[in-house]
């Protein structure tokens, strides 16, 4: 494990996960399709997960990897609930474009 880090270097992991996070963030902001936004959120989550694992190895501390498991479980739960909401939304307005979800405006 250590050699992987030594070979590639921790900074590259950081760059990659930052890049992934940005891709996810822009996806969330730019796209209007709720499913795609969900996927983008997952990308952001995984970017963080990657970073957690990388640092966990770097610090020789398993706690970070434990966190990843937590966040994966939470992400799964979130997707389950989120997709259920989307199904309900789709049944109501026949699409899942978030621009159509403006009933909450003040």
């Amino acid at each position: 494990m250590e050699n992987i880090l030594q070979e590639i270097g921790i900074d590259n992991y950081i760059y990659l996960s930052a890049l992934l996070f940005c891709v996810g963030a822009f996806g969330v902001l730019y796209r209007r399709n709720a499913i795609v936004m969900f996927m983008s959120i997952e990308i952001m989550l995984n970017a963080v997960n990657l970073l957690l694992v990388a640092f966990s190895t770097y610090h020789q501390d398993a706690a970070g990897q434990v966190f990843v498991f937590f966040s994966m479980a939470v992400a799964a739960a979130e997707v389950a609930v989120g997709l259920a909401i989307l199904v309900a939304v789709y049944r109501n307005i026949s699409n899942i474009d978030i621009d159509n979800l403006k009933k909450l405006k003040g």
Partner: peptide
């Protein structure tokens, strides 16, 4: 006046959030 900020657009909220 302030309520116009709450325009209901999720994308806008997210942008502000980010």
């Amino acid at each position: 006046q302030g309520r116009y900020i709450q325009n209901g657009s999720v994308g806008f909220y997210l942008l502000i959030f980010v």
